[in-house]
Design a protein around this nucleic acid. Sequence first.
DNA 1: CTGAAAGCGCTTACAG
DNA 2: CTGAAAGCGCTTACAG
Lengths: 350, 350
Amino acid sequence: MRTKESTKPTIKDVARQAGVSPTTVSYVLNNTRFVSPATEARIRAAIEDLSYQPDLIARSLRANRTLSVGMVVSDITNPFYADVVRGAEDFFSEQHYSLILCNTDESPENELASLQMLRSKKVDGLIIVATGQNIQQLDETSSGGLPIVLVDRRLPEDRLDTVIVDDEQGAFAVVNHLLEHGHTRIGMIKPLGGISTTDHRCQGYEKALRKFGLAPDPSLMINGYSTIKGGTAAALALLDLKPRPTAIFSANNLMSIGLYLAIKQRGLACPKDVAIVGFDDMVWFSVFSPGLTTVYQPSYELGKRAAQLLCQRICGGHTNTAPSLVELPSRLVIRESCGCGSNQANLFFS
Amino acid sequence: MRTKESTKPTIKDVARQAGVSPTTVSYVLNNTRFVSPATEARIRAAIEDLSYQPDLIARSLRANRTLSVGMVVSDITNPFYADVVRGAEDFFSEQHYSLILCNTDESPENELASLQMLRSKKVDGLIIVATGQNIQQLDETSSGGLPIVLVDRRLPEDRLDTVIVDDEQGAFAVVNHLLEHGHTRIGMIKPLGGISTTDHRCQGYEKALRKFGLAPDPSLMINGYSTIKGGTAAALALLDLKPRPTAIFSANNLMSIGLYLAIKQRGLACPKDVAIVGFDDMVWFSVFSPGLTTVYQPSYELGKRAAQLLCQRICGGHTNTAPSLVELPSRLVIRESCGCGSNQANLFFS
DNA sequence: CTGAAAGCGCTTACAG
DNA sequence: CTGAAAGCGCTTACAG
């Protein structure tokens, strides 16, 4: 039974209808000082009656917080980042924060533009998969009072809160597994651009090789775009080497798919002609033929933890605490692409 | 060389430093009336010098638009929706709009909460994959002046702008293809809850059957959650029928993955024991074994078109135009799971 | 060619 | 137990 249909009711309308001041309405809205039960009841009735919804923009301007956070990833289309975003979103929606999503496509310019936009929109905090090319701006933003949490990738000196996965350990485990199968000529395909995840996975790869007395061979480590196509291109380069590597480690989820396509394209058999392992797991990797042996990373958890950390910075007293570095454990997932159980690997489908 | 480090500069600070009024600063900021080159230069210098960034919250309150839009999907973790979101985001970021992302998990309560939040945050528009359970609220919101574009799913009577895919035609084509292989006992697994996509895909399935003189058999149509697990459960029910269907149509991308897992679990061979086809394509479906024959939908384009439509409603004169219904074409993608080329289907991997 | 002033819808010291 | 008033940082008629 609303009185004025034309325009959205404001706090004044509620106040008038309840016969009180906007001040008091505000206090019951925010539950921020005692109001007599009788007036509170009248106010709530008026709110209900007018279907009043507070204007969060006005509130933000006045209260200097927006209940919005920025979420900057390279590409939401990459299932890994979709999981990370979902983990963050689930946490924040519980806290009544909303998420502004930005994709950078790994472009520092896009990243900077997103950063500026988010600052202008006065988000209360920011979670970012950093390209690594705007470190100074990130630092300035953070010391300017906007909490930032890095997720998935570290930045030099760890001056910001960071949530990552134990990339080196994960890569070590999966390459070690390949080595235990007896491989000695193991190629690696990996994203270009010095991001921490790639660096650490390389270190894990090299560490595993050295454990087996092998020297890392630069000609066996091929860079490419971290896309399916990039993976195919890098993999083809590796597959066309003479002699061909007997195994390949793909350090990126989309590149792993490209690796499968490259093997198919060259008419090779996996794991017979070339064994492969990946990094990052996706449910459907088990449906691939052969199933991909890979490193599971807790992607959803990554986003959730980042969100928790950010929330502490925003709300909590963690204002002057030193930045935390949270490292989540990865886990080796053994399927058939490495050569395990390869005799029955393809019995299911004929 | 900024003068005050402590607090963010406002338009007043810029005005003072340039020796003009805030009014004039605002006009050059928005490029909205002529300002003499000399003063404009002084103002721009001041902006630069102070690294002034306008407060978009204040601007929103005053100008009554936020340059934000809401994007409500069931689950960003589903690659189909990730594509849709990306299509929308790409378009909007060009227009300097930002996207607030919400996941509903198909829950009407979550959807309603998102809707209210987005209204309170005064988004300029809204793209939504509707659950179908909040039709009235959506209508009211729209007639209350907030433009809404439905994507992926229609609502009865098409009272809102809608961008969809030709689900019926797509399903018809893929089931028709199965029928041409000679199958007469074709099961279907599909999401529960009367959403338009599922309804139309069922119609396409039934239409194809009837074209071949077959009567749709309700016991061959199994509902499930539109998840991988849901797909597995529904598929197992179908595979355990006696006699077993010789082919299965999965009407949902995640359920298709579940279908593969169910076939594997029962130790059956595809397409020999049971042929399968899906709806919605993902690049990695080609890496599955056998590759999934399915219906490609232009998911990215879906999001992009929805964004365009919304933008027209927001900015353009399309205020009182009748709602448009955009139907994008799907496309049959033939791989091996239907039985095509099955003799060489698994030569690649051994 | 430019400015003074009102006001967007809230919150929050201050006061009683 | 409640209110009057200032003010968050902008934009935009109105005026000259």
